[in-house]
């Protein structure tokens, strides 16, 4: 009986994580790690393992809808994955070094503060309204960064182009580095790089980020598996919940106005920032 109640509680945490993760483009891990460690007292290693699998589940679950409805742009996603996977490899190689030298806590605090500070200029820029007007540059054409999708909230076809591919690539490299090094924060940089760097519409950004995060997470899977971070009883209910949540999240995102998705992203930016600062000070 205790086992069933425990299972249902983990399932509910998974559903919430799936909805938030699929709509913000950050994956379910952002919600799952603090929920498992703070509410359930699960050790960080098992929470990290559940987070990795959650990220892949949110990504694959929601992206199947986003890709079919052409919200996620496969070319943009794949071209940025070159940087995120490379960053993740370098990050996981450096991780051992930063943990051995005890500088990981400083990195968590510094990155956490940077994320929280970055909320302010983002709000200012979003308030100005139209931010997607720019002249096409060489990369728009060369990397085929244009596309269109049908916006179910505004009931019209939205045509868009991405600019400054190089900037997107550099920010994504940083995102991959963070995923490999600290295990969190990668999705935030992907969204920033695509939305504010490459000037892609918010829905294209979060759904393409969603499409990408599964691949970045898969790069850490072999290490997590052999370290024994994956506990079947914790992961099973969380994954089932995440898949249910991601399914609904993807339906809701398509019908939500971009403005609201931006607000959700900014809130999550603050949540991730605070999480990193807490981790830096050794709280969960």
């Amino acid at each position: 009986m205790i086992a069933i109640i425990y299972f249902v509680e983990l399932l509910l945490a998974g559903i919430i994580a799936g909805v938030v993760g699929s709509m913000s483009g950050l994956g379910g891990g952002v919600v799952i790690v603090p929920a498992l460690t703070l509410l359930f007292g699960i050790p960080l290693e098992y929470a990290a393992g559940a987070s990795l699998v959650s990220t892949i589940a949110t990504s694959s679950g929601a992206a199947s809808a986003y890709v079919k409805d052409k919200l996620a742009n496969i070319r943009i996603g794949m071209s940025l994955e070159v940087a995120t996977t490379l960053g993740a490899i370098v990050g996981s190689l450096l991780a051992a070094y930063i943990y051995a030298n005890g500088i990981s806590s400083y990195l968590f605090i510094v990155f956490g503060i940077v994320l929280i500070i970055s909320i302010y200029p983002a709000i200012k820029e979003y308030k100005k309204g139209k931010m997607h007007r720019m002249n096409k540059d060489w990369s728009t054409k060369f990397f085929q960064l244009s596309g269109s999708y049908y916006d179910k909230a505004e009931k019209k076809v939205v045509r868009y182009s991405g600019y400054r591919w190089g900037l997107g690539e550099i920010v994504s490299l940083g995102g991959g580095l963070m995923s490999g090094l600290l295990g969190v924060g990668g999705g935030v940089l992907k969204v920033m790089g695509m939305n504010r760097g490459m000037r892609l519409p918010m829905k294209v950004t979060t759904s393409t980020s969603n499409f990408m995060i599964g691949v970045t997470a898969a790069t850490s899977s072999a290490i997590y598996w052999s370290l024994g971070y994956i506990q079947p009883f914790i992961v099973a209910p969380v994954v089932i919940g995440i898949l249910i949540g991601a399914y609904f999240g993807s339906k809701v995102l398509e019908r939500t106005q971009s403005r609201k998705i931006r607000t959700l992203f900014l809130i999550m930016l603050g949540v991730v920032g605070l999480q990193m600062i807490f981790r830096g000070f050794g709280v969960a």
Binding site: I2, A3, F40, P43, Y46, Y224, S226, Q231, F233
Partner: peptide, 12 residues
Amino acid sequence: IINVNSKINSSI
């Protein structure tokens, strides 16, 4: 298996 500190994990 359901013990939070359970040693039953992917490594075995």
